[in-house]
Nucleic acid binder design. Structure first.
Length: 359
DNA sequence: GAGCCGTGGCG
DNA sequence: TCGCCAAGGCT
């Protein structure tokens, strides 16, 4: 849990990016005071009176100011952040981008070993772009959602072709890359280049839903109101905003968790609208779980796992052996899944009913 | 906008 | 045990 040291490694690049050291971040954060006149125009946080909805304007009140929220959460982050390698001050933007793609819907602990393999094997976009997509799919291992590997490979090629092999710093250009959506573009621009963006992931949305709006869970899909709220809460200065983004995420990941929030450890529990309201249960529709047994995804996963394992192309019968028993009686489903994998570019068909990862 | 896309760990 | 959930994106 100890903060990483900032001066251990020299910054290898002169390209614009995040502040080089944690000290620089601390300096950038130093302007925080809850009483300075410049904060008078800030929205003030208070308990919503009734029927709060995520993104409702923050009502005025004497309880706690925006800058207080900033100060407490940033201080908490300084003391409690995890020591993750992609947060090292000199971590290259490309390595940060890889981490963000891998972390989409996949827990940190499973990402760590695969990320280390990737950044060692493909230290720059050019290295990855030089190989076939099948290598990316194979090296993806069991992280899940293997189309992410395919898109990351395509992103590497686009970075080489369109940006001279350097991860673009511009949010719009990041957004144009395969596999990079609203969240990841903002995350890379913020974490790798120290820019000011509203970084709205599931953690941040949950923290704001509880502390500000007073509800247990955010809506299913990101609303315009949430984006507005996240933007309003962004600190003014780039470096501080970037640090704020990762700090709120970390709070959501470690304390303000989905199931059993550790409100006793929360730095802003005293001003949490949801807690003050008595921690009311989620009133919206139950979040639908994803079916798994017997689904196409299970079959696709089994087929692709077999191809990942084998260095040689597999025949159709060899492939069939790998799918679960429950699906053996469903050649229609199997065929649909194999076709789907081929359409997605995850599998390459060869003459004679043989298949392999794409070259 | 709803549905789809993997995988594994945990309460 | 088993449903829920994990730094989303794309169609």
């Amino acid at each position: 849990m100890s903060p990483t040291t900032g001066a251990k490694h020299p910054a290898p690049s002169s390209r614009p990016r995040k502040p080089a050291t944690r000290e620089a971040n601390r300096r950038a954060d130093g302007a925080a005071t809850s009483t300075s006149p410049q904060n008078q125009g800030d929205p003030t946080l208070a308990v919503p009176s009734s029927a709060p909805r995520q993104g409702d304007p923050i009502p005025a009140g004497p309880t706690a100011s925006k800058s207080t929220l900033h100060r407490k959460i940033l201080a908490w982050y300084d003391a409690n952040q995890r020591d993750l390698p992609w947060r090292e001050p000199d971590c290259p933007p490309w390595h940060i981008l890889i981490s963000e793609i891998m972390l989409q819907q996949t827990p940190v602990n499973r990402v760590l070993p695969v990320w280390r393999e990737w950044v060692e094997r493909w230290p720059t976009p050019k290295h990855l772009a030089a190989e076939g997509p099948g290598e990316a799919i194979r090296a993806w291992g069991r992280l899940g959602y293997p189309r992410r590997a395919l898109r990351l490979h395509a992103a590497a090629q686009a970075i080489v072709e369109r940006h001279g092999g350097e991860v673009p710093t511009d949010h719009t250009e990041l957004l144009a890359l395969p596999g990079i959506g609203s969240y990841t573009a903002a995350a890379v621009a913020s974490f790798a280049f120290g820019q000011r963006h509203a970084v709205l992931d599931t953690n941040v949305r949950r923290v704001f839903a509880r502390t500000v709006t007073g509800i247990e869970y955010p809506p299913t899909a990101v609303t315009a109101a949430e984006t507005r709220l996240a933007t309003e809460l962004l600190p003014s200065h780039d470096a501080r905003a970037a640090r704020w983004a990762v700090a709120v995420m970390e709070l959501g990941a470690l304390v303000c968790t989905a199931r059993s929030p550790k409100c006793g450890d929360c730095p802003v529990s005293d001003q949490c609208a949801w807690l003050r309201a008595g921690s009311p249960a989620h009133s919206g529709p139950a979040r639908k779980g994803q079916a798994w047994a017997g689904t196409d995804r299970q079959i696709r996963g089994a087929l692709l796992a077999a191809l990942r394992k084998s260095r040689e192309p597999l025949s159709h019968p060899q492939l069939v052996i790998e799918v679960p028993d429950s699906a053996l009686r469903e050649p229609t489903q199997r065929g649909r899944c194999l076709s789907g994998l081929i359409e997605d570019g995850l599998v390459e068909p060869l003459p004679g009913q043989r298949y392999q990862l794409p070259e």
